[in-house]
Design a protein around this nucleic acid. Structure first.
Length: 913
RNA sequence: GCCGACUUAGCUCAGUGGUAGAGCACUCGCUUCACACGCGAUAGGUCACAAGUUCAAGUCUUGUAGUCGGCACCA
């Protein structure tokens, strides 16, 4: 007898196994000893080094680990490659903060070199938080292949890709209106700018005097301060109201400048006043107009969004919003402020710091996306990759986005990141090269200055699907690249489909000629209790680490896997408790089997061959019962369905199948049915007792394997305790490794072991027990009162009941089972019907006739409602003619079944009245 | 403005044209020798609304309402 603790303590199981798995090299593909094994690989979306584990990570990591652990158990050569992202802006900000706090210095004071040195130190000190947290999650990543986006080789890859794209004309430097974050003091790509809609916006109407006339032209703006940079007023060429003014000159107030009135098709005569102020240096549309009309581009702001000298002495140095107020005041003082309307507006904000982004004219580096877009679109259109799960809506959104793709701003005014491999000579001529030496060679001088900007963090992330395997431009062939690239599936959130997924598809195709991955699983968002995305500022977040502490890692993982793929879910403690309870249930079921395991051990031959109960060869120690055949059938059915579900990435379906198999079939029925057979209190003979114990241990062991990818700690803890587990149960690829459930083969299920007859026979037994229990509950029979059960059924059915007499008596708490083809019971009996049997329980002195009548009538109403509905269908000639014959027959069968039951119930009711 | 998703039990959510499901909560009963993180038995539904297609619609189509998301525009 093996005794284990009365309740599952997750901490104990979590304390040791991970360390052993990692130390034993179980996570590395090299553990697989089969040279012909098929590979299965996943690269992790590299978390930011500034990050700590949040619910999104926990969700994604769980799914990836489930996929990897199952494939590993199936004998694939698996690699889940971990890593971290250098997170340019985030780290930069942390280091700036640290500098100010520790040394009260600005980055400029310490200089670039020192700043970058400190950033590396910051990364070493704090950048591993998330890596450690991943160990707690049980993530079976190969730590020996951990990558960081600024590792030497990955940095080399970045430089190589940049130079190649530049040489091919797909990277260029140019003057464009870009998104400027005045707080981070860097440019941002369109994807890093989020629109925030504001209801308290104002639309300000300003009057501009026309030179040599007393006419005024009214323009409207939400950013009045930009008028200081106006270099024209534009109207539609067809707009008759202004036809005579085109070509005339505006005396621009507050500046003394004179600007032309021009005609441009862009202007919508119907909108507003029909006249538009044109600020080419501060608005993308105005920039276009400026280009067409050769207008001056007047930049009136500094990089911190204060007004520059070009804004005029009155405004220089003022913050943009102060300047806005001042412009309005001055227009009012001049009598040129027409009105201010309330206006709903959406403001571009910096994704990270929420500062309002300023559109500003600036010289930056861009990737021209034409070729890249065509690569990605080509893959989607010809091969349908990546295949998104769920497909709707992501495939369409992805495709539409690609079709409308604009150039990608890749330079960032930061120091932390991959410095752009471009150098300038004294004349400002640019030389792009892989090394300084090469640049010098091109320039014919050593007097070069490197571009101070770094690349967008997503630029290096875009290479992640192959740079992590050793590709760096110089090295273009490695074993890992050959073996693991392309990867099989990517698991990520929908927020980075454009930022990351699309770009990996593009660069991987271009630089290694492969499809980065065919499948993309897009996870949903775990929302707070308030139904909004979890965030620090909202304070509605739930920390996965707290959940691990409170409910256990395994419970948290199963819960996360139980969410439908891609669906958002509102956080709810009750749900995770469900799986905490499930873990405890598994623990206790195992505990019970262990308490009754003497003389027995896990032995797959006990079920016939592996996973298969063979009918012809009764295993040693007795013929399996109907219950045994039934549980083996259910087990195999579950295994088959779980595999199907996981192949489709329906994690939630797999969880539900496992949950109900384990709890309902295995615990509620199988354990109860065989309890007497295996327990010390039972009177089974020793041989059949051992055989029964062996069977249940073996079934349990297979169930634990199926649960392992979801609940690695609990299943390993229990598996190690089962007698008879050893590395002999491993998949052949891991034969000699130390025994672990994570290397045991994943049950495929065997269709030949599905026994429809055993399932329906067992169901008839379950139905009888349930009906009697129902009578007990409804008639309020005390648990201690033993009943007699009378059953009228066919000879076949009665044979099954007779075989399970002991079980029926025990589970229905009865002491007598009378089988026959007719009921012969006193009037004072409670009755019930099942699909195959009529049941009666004599209750002399205990029965409440009114209650029994009500109970039977209740059952009758249910059956008659169904009967009516089905008869309605059958009397519809169209249905009988057009529906598949099989369906029609199903309904006829069911109607016949109901008919029998209804008449039995009616007779019973009559007898009571 | 364009595109899309969602609306199912009190709550959180599954649901694949063919008998509406789960967990939790609720009600009743249970110290039944694995588990009260448990066991047994109930109850609870106009599948947002309307029309259509179909023998048959929670499921497909269209429209309406509400909620949310993406993109674009924003003088």
């Amino acid at each position: 007898m093996i005794e284990i603790a009365k309740a599952y303590d997750p901490k104990e199981a979590e304390s040791s196994h991970y360390e052993r798995w990692e130390r034993s090299g179980f996570f590395a593909p090299e553990i697989n000893g089969d040279p012909n094994a098929t590979k299965y690989s996943i690269v992790i979306p590299p978390p930011n080094v500034t990050g700590s584990l949040h619910m999104g990570h926990a969700l994604q990591h769980t799914l990836m680990d489930v996929l990897i652990r199952r494939k590993r158990m199936q004998g694939f050569r698996t690699l889940w490659l971990p890593g971290t992202d250098h997170a340019g802006i985030s780290v930069q900000r942390k280091v700036v903060e640290q500098l100010r706090k520790d040394d009260n210095k600005s980055p400029l004071e310490v200089g670039r070199e020192e700043f970058v040195r400190r950033a590396w130190r910051w990364k070493e000190d704090y950048g591993n938080t998330i890596v450690e947290q991943m160990r707690r999650e049980g993530a079976s990543v190969d730590w020996s292949r951990h990558r960081f986006t600024m590792d030497a080789s990955l940095s080399r890859a970045v430089r190589e890709v940049f130079c190649t794209l530049y040489e091919e004309g797909w990277i260029y430097r140019g003057l464009r209106i870009v998104n400027w974050c005045p707080k981070d003091k860097t440019v941002l790509s369109d994807l890093e700018v989020k629109e925030e809609s504001r209801k308290d916006g104002k639309l300000v109407y300003l009057q501009y005097p026309v030179k040599g006339s007393d006419r005024r032209v009214t323009v409207a703006t939400t950013r009045p301060e930009t008028m200081l940079g106006d270099t024209a007023v534009a109207v539609n060429p067809k707009d008759e109201r202004y036809a005579d003014l085109v070509g005339q000159i505006i005396k621009l107030p507050l500046t003394g400048r004179e600007i032309p009135i021009i005609a441009d098709e862009y202007v919508d005569a119907e909108f507003g006043t029909g006249a538009v102020k044109v600020t080419p240096a501060h608005d993308p549309n105005d920039y276009q107009i400026g280009q067409r009309h050769d207008l001056e581009q007047l930049l009136i702001m500094n990089d911190d969004a204060t007004m520059s000298a070009a804004a005029g002495a009155d405004f220089e140095g003022l913050d943009r919003f102060k300047a806005r107020e001042k412009v309005i005041e001055q227009f009012e003082a001049l009598g040129l402020l027409e009105k201010i309307d309330d206006y709903e507006i959406s403001l571009p904000t910096c994704e990270r710091c929420k500062t309002i982004v300023e559109p500003i004219l600036s010289e930056q580096w861009f990737v021209k996306m034409d070729e890249m877009r065509d690569l990605a679109l080509g893959l989607m259109r010809t091969e349908g990759v990546p295949h998104f799960s769920p497909q709707v809506p992501h495939e369409k959104v992805y495709t539409t986005w690609l079709e409308n793709l604009k150039d990608w701003t890749i330079s960032r005014q930061l120091w932390w990141g991959h410095q752009i491999p471009a150098w300038y000579d004294a004349d400002g001529e640019v030389y792009v090269a892989r090394t300084l030496e090469a640049a010098c060679g091109q320039a014919g001088t050593i007097d070069l200055t490197q571009d101070g900007d770094v690349l967008d963090t997503w630029f290096s992330a875009a290479l992640w699907a192959f740079s992590t395997f050793g590709w760096n431009g110089e090295v273009t062939e490695t074993d890992d690249l050959d073996t693991f690239c392309p990867t099989d599936v990517l698991v990520t959130g929908r927020d980075i489909i454009f930022l990351w997924v699309s770009r990996m598809m593009m660069t991987t195709k271009k630089f290694v000629g492969k499809t980065a991955f065919e499948d993309v699983i897009v996870t949903g968002t775990v929302l707070g209790k308030d139904g909004k995305p979890m965030s620090k500022s909202r304070g509605n977040g739930v920390d996965p680490i707290d959940l691990f502490d409170k409910f256990g890692v395994d419970a948290t993982r199963v819960y996360l896997a139980s969410i439908a793929t891609g669906a958002d879910i509102r956080w709810n403690d009750a749900l995770i408790e469900t799986y905490r309870n499930f873990a405890n249930k598994i623990w206790n079921a195992t505990r019970f089997c262990l308490m009754n395991s003497e003389g027995a051990r896990v032995d797959h031959s006990s079920l016939g061959s592996e996973f298969l109960l063979q009918q012809g060869t009764p295993p040693e120690g007795g013929t399996p019962s109907i219950a045994d055949k039934w549980i083996v059938s259910r087990l195999n059915r579950t295994a088959i369905d779980v595999n199907k579900a996981l192949d489709k990435y329906f994690f939630h379906e797999a969880v539900s199948l496992l949950y109900h198999f384990f709890w309902d079939d295995f615990c509620d029925w199988y354990i109860e049915l065989v309890k007497d057979e295996i327990s010390d209190h039972g009177d089974a003979d020793p041989g059949s007792k051992t055989a029964a114990r062996t069977r249940i241990l073996t079934i349990l062991e297979i169930a634990l394997r199926m649960l392992h990818p979801f609940m690695p700690y609990l299943t390993e803890e229990l598996w190690q305790k089962l007698p008879g587990t050893s590395n002999e149960l491993h998949h052949a690829a891991y034969g000699s490794a130390d025994a672990s459930i994570m290397l045991a083969s994943f049950p495929p299920g065997d269709a030949r072991a599905i026994d429809e007859r055993a399932e329906s026979e067992m169901q008839s037994v379950i139905d009888v027990i349930s009906k009697v229990r129902n009578i007990r509950a409804e008639m309020q029979i005390k648990p201690s009162d033993r009943l007699s059960i009378h059953v009228a059924a066919s000879a076949d059915a009665n044979r099954v009941f007779a075989e399970n007499e002991a079980q029926i008596l025990k589970l229905a708490r009865a002491d007598k089972l009378v089988l026959g083809d007719k009921l012969d019971v006193p009037k004072a009996s409670a009755k019930a019907v099942t699909n195959v049997a009529e049941i009666a329980v004599p209750l002399e002195g205990l029965i409440d006739f009114e209650k029994e009548i009500a109970r039977l009538e209740g059952q009758l109403v249910k059956l008659e409602t169904e009967q009516q509905r089905l008869n309605g269908q059958l009397s519809n000639a169209n249905f009988v003619d057009r529906a598949p014959a099989e369906k029609v027959q199903d309904i006829r069968d069911r109607v016949a079944e109901i008919g029998t039951q209804v008449s039995a119930l009616r007779l019973n009711l009559e007898a009571l009245k």
